[in-house]
């Protein structure tokens, strides 16, 4: 029974990270109908910037806002400089749905190589003052550390902030309107292009939170977040790719699922399991658990 609860705790922490990456993908999908494969790259770059801030200021907590701002800025720049012109150029051509995928892959590869060029391909330590040693319960150490707790709390805070933003602010309304009916929003005075860039910026911020929170539990290298991209995508698809709540539930479900596979089957099947889960969801319930639309013809 102890193992069972431990597995759930481990799953909860990794699930929170998947949820953040999935949130980043969903925010971009809602604003521009693009699956941002560069999300992992943007997150790694912002984490490196957070790492630089920490080595200068010697304070993990102060480096967090730096990383988050950097993440938002990087993401907004990617949208404004590459994705927006690309969407305008390829509109109505046969490559319309493929070109953004290729472009975001290019950004992912470019950022990874750039990070390697600046910081090297070595493993760096981006350490947090919180311990990565598990809490003691009775006489046993459980595999859930204060840093894991910070991850779960951080993800929850980000989700609540986004939920409040979309529900209660004019910007949130504009974000929803621009993704739902861009033409009509434009007619009612929403600056759709600008709102889309802001959507990307929020996504970049969510990814940056994931990178800066998860890295202290592992290490920092140019491709240390790549696998999160796959998990984040699977989580987003489970949740329907449209819904913020769906992204979070998808992330947690996947995190706990992975933890059980890891505990009872083995590490090497995890990503094959991700592939199979993805296929099953896409073929049986393509709109995801929380999706409303009936087709995946996007």
């Amino acid at each position: 029974m102890q193992i069972f609860f431990n597995t759930i705790l481990v799953g909860l922490s990794s699930g929170a990270i998947y949820a953040l990456i999935s949130l980043a993908l969903v925010l971009v999908w809602r604003s521009t109908r693009v699956v941002n494969f560069a999300a992992a790259g943007q997150a790694i770059l912002s984490t490196y910037i957070g790492y630089e801030a920490m080595t200068r200021m010697h304070n993990y907590w102060l480096s967090l806002p730096v990383a988050i701002l950097a993440g938002a800025l990087i993401s907004a720049l990617v949208e404004a400089i590459i994705m927006r012109p690309l969407a305008k150029r390829t509109k109505g051509t046969p490559v319309e749905s493929i070109a953004p995928v290729i472009a975001t892959l290019g950004v992912l590869g470019g950022i990874r190589s750039l990070a390697g060029l600046i910081w090297g391909n070595t493993f760096l330590q981006y350490t947090s003052p919180l311990s990565s040693k598990g809490y003691m319960v009775g006489h046993t150490t459980i595999p859930f550390s204060p840093q894991n707790a910070a991850i779960v709390v951080g993800a929850a805070v980000v989700l609540l902030l986004f939920a409040a933003l979309f529900k209660f602010t004019r910007l949130g309304l504009a974000l929803r309107a621009a993704s739902f009916q861009p033409e009509i929003s434009r007619l009612s005075g929403v600056r759709v292009d600008r709102v889309r860039t802001i959507g990307w910026a929020f996504a970049g911020a969510a990814g940056a939170v994931a990178g800066a929170l998860v890295t202290p539990t592992t290490y920092l290298s140019p491709n240390s977040l790549d696998l999160l991209l796959v998990s984040g995508f699977v989580a987003a698809v489970i949740g329907g790719l449209e819904s913020l709540i769906g992204a979070v539930v998808g992330g947690i479900v996947l995190g706990v699922g992975f933890a059980f596979i890891l505990q009872y089957i083995g590490t090497s099947v995890t990503f094959s399991a991700a592939f199979i889960i993805l296929l099953i969801v896409l073929l049986i319930r393509p709109q995801g658990i929380f999706g409303k639309g009936s087709s995946r013809e996007a």
């Binding site: 693009v34 699956v35 494969f37 749905s97 493929i98 953004p100 995928v101 991209l229 796959v230 995508f233 699977v234 698809v237 990503f271 991700a274 592939f275 993805l278 296929l279 896409l282 995946r296 013809e297 996007a298």
Partner: peptide, 12 residues
């Protein structure tokens, strides 16, 4: 599957 979904599935 189309476009980004296929890309993500094959990525996995």
């Amino acid at each position: 599957l189309r476009g980004p979904y296929l890309a993500g599935t094959t990525l996995a």
